[in-house]
Design a protein around this nucleic acid. Structure first.
Length: 807
RNA sequence: GCCGGCGUGUCGGAAUUGGCAGACGAGACAGACUCAAAAUCUGUUAUCCGCAAGGAUGUGUGGGUUCGAUCCCCACCGCCGGCACCA
């Protein structure tokens, strides 16, 4: 028996070898494969076993791609280092955020190195590096020049805790996505990015992506495209017209009242004098409502304006109301209300005793005393003048065109997606490269003057007023206009956390380029990303923003593709031992460091995969790693024994070899990494029996096993590969290919069932004739067939025999 | 409320997608080695009845399709996630 497996010695040996002699090198001839991890925020807590799992998954994939197809794999890592925690730490300690960030990066880099992954550290980047954010600012300037970055004053989501505005994507349930505080609305002048200009392309581009359907669905819903019509309702006694958006123009005859958002611009113009006071009071109340109230309290409120409008379809007078259930920033901020066919309108009509007219009847029957709205689109039109008798689902499609023809409105498309609020009132972010000149307005900083460096401040403390801490640095703020040379002021807001991450993946491949964002030559060879691995929490944030940025950079000719990530894999979270999210405050964070020391990197790698399906959340259970560790030790022994004995192959071993190749490859391709590990264990158990029976397993089979195991346990594999007598790295081996004929069993066991219940199992040759197999089946259950009538005999070759019998 | 996903031993999970349910691992129990423990090895381990051979039940619940259902269809229950007054 040779020496036992010593993970410390072997892992440090190969770590050193790989450093001296990297296995993943670009010779300029290989096809490329870009396998990317979502880059981490360098938090002070370091990596826990959950982060580790994501990086293990991506490394297994990267190494597999390196061997399968002989790719040069781009597998870089960087730091998404702007953001609030570093800034908050700076507020507490007075230490510059870059200092704590740098220390955190050192620690996390050490932890990442423990994974033993192939990494292109010469591509490392950091979003807070001026050489990087120069180009983040450059992209902003290009967007500004194309009219996609603009300033606007509007009510915005404001987080009183973070003291910054938030994008819609950063607010969930009326609360700040980051800190959980209730958000309020604040009227502020902010920089916006016109992501809505790309709504259709962002929607349509999803079709060609190999992404989880769930994420595509989330983005589709977030963009929220709907088709309908805008219809003009003249206001009685004035020249004004109220423009409403509806997806159900077929129900126009059923519109018995209208509702405007309290913020609608016509409110003050059309309110009747006797209702003025009530309307003003209602608007004030609506403005004071918090986002949480608005989302959670769905009890309808409203006020009558005292004014009537005319339904343009039938000339009927309809009262105009105000209510905050109509959103000012969706559609036209005004709706026509059809209480018979919309739940919200129904509730409003019931509360304020407004008329309800049914215009769609299921099977032509009108409902007496309606108790709830009939919201289905199928039925026959009634009470609808010229439309009576039509099928409503047909009319729904045709109505926008009819309305347009009549000159009372037009066909339209609407989106839920809003423009992206892009400025933040905080210190630790990229300065927005704009100069405000009293004469020339907002002027971009000339490209050759980029980057606009983030200056040092005395206080990082954010303000309550919506002003950035940068505003206090007069010598930085005061500058001259690049256009006219007169005194001007710098923009003091910074960019949101998402700015750098929206395009960083493009920069890795040309990280030192100081002439352009990325050279066309390098972009054409290395990009886009072939596989992107990370958590699902960025579905409508980072992943949507990145797609928008890439489409924009495509349009200005910076890159020749317009989707950044061809394939996306969302790994599940590792939860704490009790199944709750790991967090510092709960004290259930498990660090990989001790386990790497005690069990070795390869054991932890495999355990991270074995714990459950990679896309699924799994609770951490530290005991499980023992099983994986035992498996690696056993395999080490099987391999060592076999190397010593060098036995000749037999058909059983050859069959095992080809079955293993086929099983492992299939599972890798399906991303079923947990069952790939099970299969390794299963085959290892079989090989152990062969060692007992034949003294060892033939070295070709051992070599194949080692090759297949290499992406999972790279150190152990390299060591055994060397012990098998090879001088080159196992990672330069081509991925083995199974010979299905050699993998096929000669004899198969098939169950024999009576009425679907297994009563016996027979062994038959795979080539046996149908009748012989059936005969063998009959024999196996002969005693049970006695006195029975066989009604039907079912034989699925190689699978099953089933006799349907009756007394 | 709407849209997804899931529900299998004590636990994590598997089942080549309609063909022996519970692979693989953890845990537990028993045994071997040991003065002893750890490590290692060898068994057993879905439930119920039975000394046993064997039999019955069993993939959230109820029904259906099928020779055969964890898998397909219908209804329901429970958990998780997303969206949420989007006209």
């Amino acid at each position: 028996m040779s020496a036992p497996y010593n993970h410390i010695e072997i892992e440090s040996k190969w770590r050193k070898r790989w450093e001296e002699n990297p296995v993943n090198v670009n010779d300029g001839k290989k096809p490329k494969y870009y396998c990317l991890d979502m880059f981490p925020y360098p938090s002070g807590a370091g990596l826990h076993v959950g982060h580790w799992r994501g990086y293990v998954i991506s490394d297994v994939w990267a190494r597999y791609k390196m061997m399968d197809g002989g790719h040069y794999v781009i597998h870089p890592m960087g730091w998404d280092a702007f953001g609030l925690p570093a800034e908050n730490y700076a507020i507490q300690t007075g230490q510059h955020p870059s200092v704590s960030t740098e220390a955190n990066i050192r620690n996390i880099k050490r932890q990442i190195d423990q994974i033993g992954a192939i990494r292109d550290w010469d591509m490392e980047l950091n979003t807070t590096d001026p050489a990087f954010y120069r180009w983040t600012q450059w992209i902003f300037v290009q967007m500004f020049k194309k009219g996609l970055a603009y300033e606007k004053e509007m009510p915005l989501n404001w987080c009183p805790h973070c003291k910054a505005v938030l994008a819609n994507e950063e607010v969930a349930d009326g609360k700040c996505e980051r800190c959980g505080s209730e958000t309020t609305k604040k009227n502020l002048r902010q920089w916006m990015l016109k992501i809505t200009a790309y709504a259709d392309r962002l929607l349509e581009g999803l079709d060609g992506l190999e992404w989880p359907e769930k994420v595509k669905k989330m983005q589709t819903d977030w963009i929220g495209r709907s088709y309908g019509a805008e219809v003009l309702f003249p206001v009685e006694g004035t020249d004004e017209k109220i423009n409403v958006y509806t997806t159900r123009p077929d129900t126009l005859f059923g519109a018995t009242f209208m509702v405007l958002a309290p913020e609608h611009e016509l409110v003050s113009k059309i309110t009747a004098p006797e209702q003025k006071e009530a309307v003003e009071a209602y608007c004030a109340m609506a403005a004071a409502k918090s986002s949480v109230d608005r989302v959670q309290n769905k009890e309808k409120t409203g006020v009558f304006t005292g004014t009537y409008a005319i339904n343009p379809m039938n000339g009927e007078k309809v009262p105009v109301w105000l209510s905050d259930y109509v959103l000012a920033d969706y559609g036209t901020g005004a709706i026509m209300c059809v209480p018979a066919h919309d739940d919200r309108d129904f509730a409003f009509a019931k509360k304020f005793d407004l008329p309800i007219i049914q215009v769609i009847a299921k099977d032509g029957i009108e409902i007496e005393d309606m108790q709830e709205a009939y919201t289905e689109a199928s039925g026959t039109m009634i009470n609808s003048g010229e439309w009576n008798g039509m099928e409503s689902s047909v009319l729904k499609e045709e109505a926008p065109a009819i309305i347009e023809k009549k000159g009372i409105g037009k066909k339209t498309v609407n989106y839920k997606l809003r423009d992206w609020v892009f400025s933040r009132q905080r210190y630790w972010g990229e300065p927005i490269p704009i100069i405000h000149c009293p004469e020339c307005g907002a002027v971009p900083v000339p490209e050759e003057q980029l980057p606009v460096l983030l200056p040092d401040v005395e206080s990082y403390q954010p303000t309550d007023t919506g002003e950035s801490p940068l505003a206090a640095i007069d010598e930085w703020v005061n500058t001259t206009c690049p256009c006219c040379g007169r005194p001007a002021k710098r923009e003091t807001n910074t960019m949101p956390q998402w700015a750098g991450s929206s395009w960083y993946f493009l920069r890795y491949v040309d990280v030192h380029n100081d002439k352009e964002l990325v050279s066309r030559e390098k972009a054409d060879y290395y990009l886009p990303v072939d596989m992107y691995i990370g958590g699902v929490e960025h579905a409508v944030l980072h992943l949507l923003y990145s797609r928008f940025y890439t489409k924009f950079l495509h349009d200005i000719g910076a890159v020749d593709f317009d989707e950044p990530f061809r394939r996306l894999f969302n790994q599940g979270m590792i939860l704490g031992p009790k199944g709750v999210k790991m967090s510092k405050s709960l004290g259930n964070v498990v660090s990989p460091d001790d386990m790497v020391r005690d069990y070795g990197c390869d054991s932890l790698r495999i355990y991270e995969l074995f714990i459950g399906p990679p896309q699924q959340d799994s609770a951490w259970d530290e005991r499980g790693i023992d099983g994986v560790n035992r498996f690696l030790n056993k395999f080490w022994n099987v391999a060592s024994e076999s190397i010593e004995k060098n036995v000749a192959p037999n058909p059983e071993m050859i069959r095992l070899r080809h079955k293993l190749i086929s099983d492992i490859t299939m599972r890798l391709d399906q991303f079923a990494l947990n069952t790939a590990v099970s299969k390794f264990m299963e085959y290892n158990n079989q090989m152990q029996k062969m060692v007992q029976e034949y003294g060892g397993v033939d070295l070709e089979t051992i070599g194949t096993y080692v090759t297949l195991l290499a992406p999972f346990a790279p150190h152990l594999a390299e060591e055994l590969w060397e012990r098998l007598g090879h001088t080159d790295s196992v990672f330069h081996e081509a991925w083995p290919v199974a010979d299905e004929e050699l993998a096929a069993d000669e004899v198969v066991e098939i169950p024999v069932q009576l009425n679907g219940k297994t009563k016996a199992v027979i062994s038959v040759s795979v080539n046996a004739a149908r009748d012989d197999v059936l005969e063998a089946g009959r024999k196996a259950v002969a005693d049970r067939l006695a006195g029975m009538t066989v009604i039907k005999e079912i034989l699925v070759p190689g699978k099953i025999i089933n006799f349907v019998i009756r007394k």
